[in-house]
């Protein structure tokens, strides 16, 4: 069968009601995820639209033995990370270089030494949301995505590994690196606005 023939058969097999059910079930979560990654409602809207469009167009490529949700969030993450990377490249600012330093093995002993109590106190205080938001925006988009998946959405490492198609050990190390990056950024924020 020709390429077009295969694609047509796959497309005709898309159960419209299943797609609609998926939109109603995961649309809100997808929007919130996208918003947390990009920090703008308008951009989040575009990202969600792009991710669902890709899902609809490629529905026939999905392996029914695998999780549709994980597949969709992989698409959404990829769309969001690419868009934010493009935007940040246009700004010509390497936020990673400013706030994250290298990717070496960190131990918490050399992490903001003596600042843990101040950070903890600052986080518990009211009105710290702006500092937290700025710190989240300051880490790389990859770190932001993993923080949202792990700390905000409460996904297990296994879920994240499935969504990102990486081994469990990689998720574990990425989560800890993202936390360190966020903490450094937050430490900078709390120094500026004690």
């Amino acid at each position: 069968m020709s390429q077009i023939g295969r694609a047509t058969v796959a497309f005709e097999a898309v159960p419209t009601s299943l797609f609609e059910e998926f939109v109603r079930g995961y649309g809100e979560r997808a929007f919130q995820f996208a918003y947390r990654i990009c920090g703008s409602a308008d951009e989040a809207r575009e990202l969600v639209q792009a991710a669902f469009t890709r899902l609809w167009e490629r529905w026939g490529e999905h392996d029914p033995a695998r999780s549709l949700e994980a597949w969709f969030f992989r698409i959404l993450r990829s769309v969001a990370v690419d868009a934010v990377r493009r935007r940040e490249r246009r700004r010509s600012v390497s936020l990673d270089a400013l706030v994250e330093g290298g990717d070496g093995e960190d131990t918490y002993a050399d992490l903001v030494p003596g600042r843990e109590d101040a950070l903890l106190e600052a986080l518990e205080r009211r009105g710290r949301q702006e500092a937290v938001r700025r710190a989240l925006a300051a880490v790389s988009v990859e770190h932001r995505a993993i923080l949202v998946l792990c700390d905000v959405e409460g996904r297990t490492y296994e879920d994240i590994a499935r969504a990102l198609t990486v081994p469990l050990g990689t998720v574990r190390s990425r989560v800890s690196r993202a936390r360190l990056a966020f903490r450094r950024a937050l430490s900078g924020e709390t120094e500026v606005t004690p």
Partner: peptide, 21 residues
């Protein structure tokens, strides 16, 4: 500190998905 960071990230306000979307 990890628990506090998690709470602070979860508490960030997020707008609802626009109905027309």
């Amino acid at each position: 500190l990890i628990a506090a960071e998690r709470r602070s990230l979860s508490a960030l306000p997020v707008p609802s998905m626009p109905p027309d979307l």
